[in-house]
C-alpha cells in the first residue's frame, strides 16, 4: 500500500534521512522506535508531505505522491495524522473540530458531517463532550478527539507522531486503547512511539531507526527479544 524508495531529507546541511526504503501492506501496523533525533518524526511527516522529501520516491496505492504535479491536499485527505501536541482547534468545539474538514474539504452537509462526527466521538468514548471546547478537556481526551478528527476524513492510513509523549502517565492507556481498537479494525497505521509495550503488543512490524536509517526491522519478537544489531540492543536496554 505504501512504497518508499530511497527517501532522503535534509534541512540545510543537516542530513536527517539518509535513504529509507520500505513497503507497508494494507492493514499493517508499523511501529517506529529509536532515539530522539534519529529521524523518526521526519520520516512520518514525509509520508503525508508535511515535509517535502529531498530525494527518493513515495507511492501510496501505486500513486507517486512525490511527483511534482500531484495535488498534495488530495494525498493528505487520505493520510490521517495525529500529533504529539494534539493541535486541536481551540476556537472550535469538540464536534466542530471533528466535523470541520469533512464539511469544508469533502463538502458534506453540516448535518451529515455532525452525525458522523457524533458516531466517531462515541467510538472514542467522548460523545458527552461534543459541545465543549478543547480547553476543557484533559490531555488524553484531547488526543482521542484528535484521532476522531483524523478518522472523520475516512483516511486510508493513519500516521501517529508520538501520540502519547505529551500525556500524563495515567492518560496514556485510554489513547493506546483507542489505537488498539483501530488496529484491530484493520486500519493501516504507522506509529512513531516510545511506548514499547504498545509496539510489542499491537505492531505487526517494528522498525528501529537511528541516525537517519532503518537499522533493523522485524516482528516485535525479533526486535525486542532477538535484536541482531548492537545499536538496537543498546537502545532497548536503556528504554525497557
Amino acid at each position: 500500500m505504501i512504497e518508499i524508495k530511497d527517501l532522503h531529507k535534509q534541512f540545510g546541511e543537516l542530513q536527517v534521512l539518509k535513504g529509507i526504503s520500505i513497503d507497508i501492506k494494507e492493514s499493517e501496523v508499523v511501529c517506529v522506535i529509536g532515539p530522539s533525533g534519529s529521524g523518526k518524526s521526519t520520516f512520518l511527516r514525509c509520508i503525508n508531505l508535511l515535509e517535502m522529501p529531498s530525494s527518493g520516491e513515495i507511492f501510496i496505492d501505486d500513486e507517486k505522491i512525490t511527483d511534482r504535479k500531484i495535488n498534495i491536499n488530495k494525498i493528505r485527505e487520505e493520510a490521517g495524522m495525529v500529533f504529539q501536541h494534539f493541535n486541536l482547534f481551540p476556537h472550535k468545539t469538540t464536534i466542530q473540530n471533528v466535523a470541520l474538514a469533512p464539511i469544508k474539504v469533502r463538502k458534506l452537509s453540516k448535518a451529515e458531517a455532525e452525525k458522523r462526527a457524533h458516531d466517531l466521538l462515541k467510538k472514542v468514548g467522548l460523545e458527552d463532550k461534543a459541545n465543549v471546547y478543547p480547553s476543557a478537556l484533559s490531555g488524553g481526551q484531547k488526543q482521542r478527539v484528535a484521532i476522531a478528527r483524523a478518522l472523520a476524513m475516512h483516511p486510508k492510513l493513519m500516521l501517529f507522531d508520538e501520540p502519547t509523549s505529551a500525556l500524563d502517565p495515567e492518560m496514556v492507556g485510554e489513547v493506546l486503547g483507542v489505537m488498539k481498537d483501530l488496529a484491530q479494525a484493520g486500519m493501516t497505521m504507522v506509529v512513531v512511539t516510545h511506548e514499547m509495550g504498545f509496539a510489542r503488543e499491537v505492531a505487526d512490524r517494528v522498525l528501529f531507526m537511528d541516525d537517519g536509517l532503518i537499522v533493523e526491522q522485524g516482528t516485535p519478537h525479533d526486535i525486542f527479544s532477538n535484536a541482531k544489531h548492537e545499536r538496537t540492543r543498546s537502545f532497548l536496554s536503556k528504554v525497557l
Binding site: 503525508n48 508535511l50 491536499n73 488530495k74 493528505r76 485527505e77 493520510a79 490521517g80 495524522m81 500529533f83 501536541h85 493541535n87 486541536l88 482547534f89 481551540p90 476556537h91 470541520l100 474538514a101 469544508k104 474539504v105 484528535a146 478528527r149 483524523a150 476524513m153
Partner: peptide, 29 residues
C-alpha cells in the same frame, strides 16, 4: 502555533482555507 497550520493541512485543507478557518479566527481574538 505552527501545529495549527499543520493540523489543518494534514486534514486536506489548502493553505487559504486553513488561514480562513483556523489561523485568522484565532489571530483576531
Amino acid at each position: 502555533d505552527r501545529g495549527q497550520m499543520e493540523a489543518a493541512r494534514s486534514l486536506g485543507m489548502n493553505e487559504s482555507m486553513a488561514m480562513r478557518e483556523i489561523i485568522l479566527p484565532q489571530a483576531f481574538r
